[in-house]
């Protein structure tokens, strides 16, 4: 089982190295930019942020409260 453990260790090191390289590339090429904007993509002009999209919650709508 020692050879098996060494085998696993080597494979894990290789995979970890790939992971580190992948993340470095990702961070460098801007994959993690604009985290806040990323959260906003679920809204659009017709269903904007601040507006519940369940009519049961229309009382909580920002536009209605005006």
């Amino acid at each position: 089982m020692l050879t098996a453990a060494i085998f696993v260790l080597i494979v894990m090191l290789i995979l970890s190295a790939i992971t580190v390289i992948a993340f470095s590339w990702a961070a460098g090429s801007g994959q993690f930019e604009d985290p806040a904007d990323g959260a906003r993509v679920i809204f659009d002009d017709d269903e904007p942020e601040g507006e519940p999209t369940d009519p049961n919650l229309s009382q909580f709508s920002e536009t209605k409260r005006k």
């Binding site: 894990m12 995979l15 992948a22 994959q31 993690f32």
Partner: peptide, 18 residues
Amino acid sequence: MNRFHFIIIGSVLTLFSS
């Protein structure tokens, strides 16, 4: 994250590692 390739390759690799 804005490239699907990254997600796809990453998902495949993590499963392969297990």
